[in-house]
Design a protein around this nucleic acid. Sequence first.
DNA 1: AATTGTTTTAACCAAATAGTACAAAAAGCT
DNA 2: AGCTTTTTGTACTATTTGGTTAAAACAATT
Lengths: 216, 216
Amino acid sequence: MSIPSTSNRSAAKKRNPEAVKANILRVATEEFATSGYAGARVNVIAEKTDTSKRMIYYYFGDKKELYRTVLEAAYRDIRLGEQQLHLNDLNPEQALRSLVAFTFEHQRNNPQFIRLVMIENIHEGRNLIAKEAFEEVNNPAIDRLGEIYQRGVEEGVFRSGISVIELHWLISSACFFNNSNRSTFSAAFGNDLFTEEGQSHLNQQVQEMILRFVAN
Amino acid sequence: MSIPSTSNRSAAKKRNPEAVKANILRVATEEFATSGYAGARVNVIAEKTDTSKRMIYYYFGDKKELYRTVLEAAYRDIRLGEQQLHLNDLNPEQALRSLVAFTFEHQRNNPQFIRLVMIENIHEGRNLIAKEAFEEVNNPAIDRLGEIYQRGVEEGVFRSGISVIELHWLISSACFFNNSNRSTFSAAFGNDLFTEEGQSHLNQQVQEMILRFVAN
DNA sequence: AATTGTTTTAACCAAATAGTACAAAAAGCT
DNA sequence: AGCTTTTTGTACTATTTGGTTAAAACAATT
């Protein structure tokens, strides 16, 4: 689509708007996730790109618009990642366990996304939030969880009367916290929980906790 | 100690260094919690105090030092608040339930503290963390939880083999997330979980989840 | 060849920002 | 009274910041 027809020649400077935008976006995502909106510096972003500050303003207008674009792109990536999970052919317990395990790993592997959400929460909606993006990310997750839970209740392995949103909230809290508070938690209690083994064990504990919570 | 001897006279301008410092600190805490370290403005803090920017520098030197002092004071306050809970005369299940309920409420009622911790996590230790302060806040919490758990295991009502730090982590994650992610969560799913009734119900669900997790 | 959109370069600007200098008054202590 | 500490006021500065301007070169499409 946007691939230039004469792209496989020598390493001369070819023009490629999409690649330039993507490059800016990648660098900006990292900077915003690392330093927050106010803490991030347009000049620093510019230096780390393969292009110039001028191009940032050429394509994104201003800092806020760049930030909004970063957010939307991050949400889209996360949403695409979550769609890779299929668990229709598992029994409810196995399905729920897989969902928790996947969520835990997925959030663990996307620290930048977590950080952007943290930053949004600190801003508390003042001027910056993209509300639709949140709904788009979260609603499919809720739907999938609801199906599993419903099946479990019908088959008599889960107790009834649990709110799916609350259940989602409980799963999210553990998976999110694992990433968001890693720094302060390990400052207080050491790094044991954040080694490969520690994380694997913690993941299992969260699964166990959720399954015990819904068990009949 | 620092109370002036002629303090109960008319409302003339008396000098009171401690009160001035406390006033600055209160305003600064709010500003840092609201806007983050980079987002907070010394000029804004100065305007909101009963004194001047000059006095901020007179007492705190610079912005970073002011921030550090804010952090330390916030941790101290939280620690003092947590010591108000006594549950030696309860059985292990009731004690654990009370501990969870209290933690949930305590974190819910201290949004500024939560926000400062979030900000610390975004900074990830670069230049700003007060590590000792974290340990001081968290270690007593761990000790108390450890006692309850131990009693529960000895009395046969809790299963053995659970790591106290992991248990603390599980409780913390729910209570912290409840406050830290309120903004994005309610943007995605509405405000139902954050009304008085919603919070009360959620608190009970977290208690239930933890108790089922440790149950034999 | 003309046109249009993309990219580079580098200087520039106005506003905001953290932090100071200087001076002087007021309050408390001995 | 004399001395120290606290407080106020104001103007100032050096730097950083987001953002702009102008011009020209380059690539691709027609």
